[in-house]
Amino acid sequence: MSHAAISADFSDRLDAIIALHKEREGPLLPILHDIQAEWDYIPEEAQPVIAAALGMTRAEVHGVVSFYHDFRDHPAGRHVLRLCRAEACQSMGADALADQVRAALGINFHETTPDGRLTLEPVFCLGLCACGPSAQMGDRLLGRANLAKVQKLVAEAGA
């Protein structure tokens, strides 16, 4: 049983989110976005409920949730640092930067620091190819990234 299900009003809040989007054309993605905004991830127990409401099956919902890397199957740390690993950034030293950042934070990709403050994720292109390697912290984007700039970004976010 995951964290969200323990919350007593889980199903009320879930139903409210579904009701908000159910009549839209293509309601599944807006529902998933709101769920992730609400609980910070997509609880598995929400998937059959969404499926029933939309005339789908839970396998199909799982297929969509798992397709998008940004939909999480468990909660992330308070902040998420993304390092671009796509080709353009790789050609500008993204792999070396990734090694440095992982060593400095003491965590691997997809992992969260023990204090729960920061999760490190790879991302494949942020659209900043002209100034790679690039990174992202919350809503803030970083071009021509290096270890120092990344660490500063992390510190500023209080992570």
């Binding site: 598995e44 099956t57 839970r58 396998a59 199909e60 799982h62 297929g63 798992s66 397709f67």
Partner: peptide
Amino acid sequence: GTFALTIEGRGFDSRVSAGMMSD
């Protein structure tokens, strides 16, 4: 017509999945 199966993930991570992750 049961829709019990799906392809989960994408790219190299694509796999056939019956139901959800825990199924």
